[in-house]
Write a protein that binds this DNA or RNA. Structure first.
Lengths: 157, 157
DNA sequence: CTAGAAGCTAGAGTCGACTCAAGGTCAAAT
DNA sequence: ATTTGACCTTGAGTCGACTCTAGCTTCTAG
């Protein structure tokens, strides 16, 4: 009975994944996975097989899913690293983690609000164009647009 | 009667602004103003005074305001350049401009939708933390979080 | 007339977040 | 035995959008 290296490590088959498999499952590239690890984004450095290859546990993949969630919603890597550090430290700092998450949520809300503002400006511009095109009055159009746009609601950047 | 160079250019005082003044009014740095011009973002290259200094007209400033609106709402420079080109070409391509604006509006709507999705995920996570902290059950919390998060709505990236 | 502020250009540097290249190792299959 | 393909590390390159530097010119105020 020759077990593959995948299996002979630790007690049988605790579902270890290679970097390639994790890449598939998370949608991150293998480059990015190595990069994230080097950046200290993992809660613990990924375990290795005999040959030095990374062997991801289910936990790692779940954590990476959290990371991509946070990244996609605009959290910068240093803040994710901070979060990872808190988790690494273990129980006792849940308030801090909650804080971090709440602050991030505020940021997302903020960005949504700003985008809504810009959306209005743009929609207004689109509306102006549509109206003018319907009326066939196209000459020197853009100068008028400018004036209109300036008068439009301008969300604070 | 010695006029300043600012005024003697063309017929008297048609409100010409220096790059510094435009920077003040638009919130862009002088560097950025020169950079935008070099990138072809202006409808026409900015006029110059005798000494080679830029002399912005009201139009230019209005256009720059449009640019900052578009930038803030996430339009990349190449697309703004494209828009500038259309305007530069003059009347006749209003449909194209409208198209571009409409597409941009869609993108903004899209980004808002995605952010709403991420917001839900994060809010859920925050809620879980809050509940757990209330109940004082903090051990091995983050692993549970992972599971919860994975089950949460995951907007397509 | 001169000092200092503000402009000018060309080109280099920065930052965040990857992304890729070179050169080597390791393991399963032919 | 060797080929293939996935992995490894280190370090460099890319991209977008600025941002700054160096060295020079040009106004404007005293």
């Amino acid at each position: 009975m020759t077990m593959t290296q995948q299996q002979q490590h630790e007690h049988a088959d605790v579902e270890r994944l290679s970097i390639g498999q994790v890449a598939e499952r998370t949608g991150l590239s293998v480059h990015t996975l190595r990069f994230y690890e080097a950046e200290g984004l993992m809660v613990d450095p990924v375990e290795r097989l005999a040959g030095g290859r990374r062997s991801y546990r289910a936990d790692d993949v779940e954590w990476l899913t959290i990371c991509t969630n946070l990244r996609s919603s605009g959290m910068p890597l240093p803040e994710i690293r901070r979060y990872a550090e808190l988790v690494r430290e273990g129980a006792g700092n849940e308030e801090d983690r909650l804080d971090l998450l709440r602050r991030h949520r505020e940021e997302v809300l903020d960005r949504i609000a700003k985008l809504h503002g810009w959306l209005e400006v743009i929609s207004h511009k689109v509306a102006v164009y549509e109206e003018r095109l319907d009326h066939g009055a196209t000459g020197r159009l853009w100068v008028q647009e400018c004036a209109l746009l300036d008068r439009a609601i301008e969300p604070a950047d």
